[in-house]
């Protein structure tokens, strides 16, 4: 633990923090789902929040995106402009609208009866509302709305191409195969124009080809918009490839924090994933160190 904190402290100095979670706690009745959890995510990076099943990852996500109100703690979002938002004080929709944090869901939540294109247009709701003079000017046929409407379709087209869904634009979202639905959900979140994109298990249930397409999309997101990504995974192998920074959660507490290489070799992480008793951790550490020595 001590070594982990020192490395983060070292990196914090040089990097621009986009999201800062401090002493986050979440209690459900008698259950402490998250206990004094702190971490930082940096601008332009892909940060992964990993941990075994039931570690509380989705709860952290729901706190960040406002679907749960945390029992304690502070979540600060710092935008590029330097503006800061305390996310635990905002209602959920304002977190997307003002703080510019967008999210996806573990069980995909698309508007399955709307077409793929419509899904992306709904995501631009706030922009279009403003352009349509809160419906009234738009209803009267003011040109400003027509222009905005055209632009919104262009933006949707851009993300459809990025997500390689352009051929399916006029099909109902519910008709897409699973992997395409995952990509559509990400494209939809990007249409809200976020600075931080939170992905809840984006690779779950994808086949290798779909995983590859997802990787392309995520790299595209970073390159095009410079948006930072925070993602949840429980599968370590996926995370290690794409993320710059990994935070490990177990039983609602942080057990490791650092770059993938560091986390991969952290005995506590290994113990958490292999599920060993506390007193066996020492043995695992010894084993890992032995293996590393062997490899060298």
């Amino acid at each position: 633990m001590a070594s982990a904190t020192t490395t983060t402290a070292a990196t914090t100095m040089t990097k621009d923090v986009i999201l800062k979670v401090e002493h986050l706690s979440m209690r459900f009745g008698g259950l402490m789902a998250i206990n004094d959890f702190s971490f930082e995510a940096y601008r332009g990076e892909i940060t992964a929040l990993i941990g075994p099943n039931g570690a509380g990852k989705t709860t952290v996500f729901n706190c960040i995106t406002g679907f749960y109100k945390p029992t304690m703690g502070m979540i600060t979002m710092r935008q590029k402009s330097g503006k800061e938002y305390l996310l635990e004080r905002l209602p959920d929709f304002e977190i997307t609208k003002q703080a510019k944090v967008a999210r996806t869901f573990q069980n995909i939540r698309l508007f399955s009866g709307l077409t793929v294109l419509e899904n992306l247009l709904v995501a631009q709701h706030n922009n279009l509302m403003r352009a349509s003079g809160y419906t009234i000017l738009g209803l009267l046929g003011f040109p400003a709305y027509k222009q905005a409407s055209k632009e919104s379709i262009e933006l949707a087209k851009h993300w459809l191409e990025r997500a390689s869904l352009i051929d399916r634009a006029d099909d109902p979202a519910g008709d897409l195969p699973y992997g395409a639905q995952r990509r559509l959900e990400i494209a939809r979140a990007m249409c809200t124009g976020p600075e931080l994109l939170c992905l809840d298990e984006p690779a779950a249930g994808l086949n290798p080809r779909e995983s590859l397409a997802l990787n392309d999309l995520l790299q595209g997101v970073r390159k095009d918009t410079g948006a930072s990504i925070l993602l949840i995974e429980h599968d370590m192998s996926v995370v290690m490839e794409i993320s710059d920074h990994v935070v490990v959660l177990e039983y609602g507490q942080k057990i490791s924090d650092g770059n993938p290489e560091f986390v991969k070799n952290d005995p506590k992480v290994i113990a958490a994933y292999l599920g060993v008793e506390d007193d066996e951790v020492e043995d695992v550490i010894a084993e890992v160190e032995g293996e590393e020595g062997g490899l060298k």
């Binding site: 959920d92 996806t104 869901f105």
Partner: peptide, 8 residues
């Protein structure tokens, strides 16, 4: 819920 996540 998806609506709320999109800032609506």
């Amino acid at each position: 819920i998806a609506c709320r996540s999109l800032g609506i």
